[in-house]
């Protein structure tokens, strides 16, 4: 059992948990994830490690409510326990002194890109971060991300805060600008990652994306998370989740993310009608 030490509601549907998991905290590195299970009947779902504290023995996760598991997770309070918290899984993000690194984050991924931006900055890179959200109310951790970046650009789809538009627009301007960009790291919804990769491709700037296919074990045992990269099948949980965005077969990823769309709907409806709180 793993205790929730702290809970923060970053925006109405995105929450932060600090979880007591000393052995995970000891080994966590930027870009890795955990697999959690709330209780006996729950599904195993992957969530990126957003932060960790070796001394305190805690690991921070940030999640967005999308379906049954994440909605149920949102009902867990500080002091409560969840059954399983397994990690750190996946390969860490490759951190190196590269020069200028652009970190692009969409939606909840502002949290997941934080440790990467921080590590890149600590390595002596110039870090330019771009964070995008649908609207002003969904913005969080702006100051936090700014503190680990040399420059921060904020966009909202509707223009209610920062620049109006998508993250790919400032990204393209940076690539067209006079300054040399050595690496782009894009994390967020799959579509956003795809378009970031398409944006950088003509400029030949290596672009790392963090793929989020459906997973079960997260240890290479099931093959549920298979993705195609550069024509080869890879298991995202052990060979990734980071991959070269220019090599990813995006259509395959989108298709495989939809395998259980009917079941996800059924599960959510049943949960709402039976145990869900409708307040």
């Amino acid at each position: 059992m793993y205790k929730i030490l702290l809970r923060q509601d970053l925006v109405p549907n995105i929450h932060l948990f600090k979880v007591a998991a000393p052995v995970v905290a000891k080994k966590a590195q930027p870009g890795q994830f955990v697999v959690i299970r709330i209780d006996e009947k729950g599904e195993r779902i992957p969530l990126t490690i957003a932060d960790w504290d070796k001394k305190e023995g805690s690991v921070t996760i940030v999640f967005m409510e999308v379906g049954t598991t994440t909605h149920r997770l949102a009902l867990v309070e500080a002091g409560d326990f969840i059954t399983d918290f397994i990690g750190p899984l996946g390969l860490p993000t490759h951190i190196d002194k590269l020069g200028s690194v652009v970190c692009v984050a969409g939606g909840f991924a502002v949290a997941t890109i934080m440790p990467i931006a921080r590590a890149m900055k600590e390595k002596g890179n110039k870090v330019i971060s771009i964070m995008g959200a649908r609207n002003k109310n969904l913005i969080f951790w702006e100051d936090e991300l700014r503190s680990v970046s040399n420059q921060l650009i904020v966009t909202t789809d509707d223009g209610s805060y920062g620049r109006k538009g998508l993250v790919t627009e400032p990204l393209k301007e940076l690539l067209e600008g006079s300054e040399r960009i050595d690496r782009v790291i894009a994390i967020g919804p799959s579509v956003m990652m795809k378009f970031c990769a398409l944006t950088t491709e003509p400029f030949g700037v290596k672009t790392i994306v963090s793929l989020n296919p459906i997973m079960v074990d997260g240890t290479g045992m099931c093959g549920c998370c298979r993705v195609s990269v550069g024509g080869a099948t890879k298991f995202a949980c052990v060979d990734g989740p980071d991959f070269d965005g220019h090599q990813v077969d995006w259509d395959l990823l989108f298709a495989r993310q939809r395998i259980y769309i009917d079941e996800e709907k059924r599960s959510f409806e049943q949960w709402q009608s039976q145990d869900g709180v409708s307040s």
Partner: peptide, 20 residues
Amino acid sequence: EFLTRVNLMKAYRFPEYDTP
């Protein structure tokens, strides 16, 4: 994957057990 979903995650009792 198939057997893990069915045996370990008890997908044969979906949606009571949440793994499809």
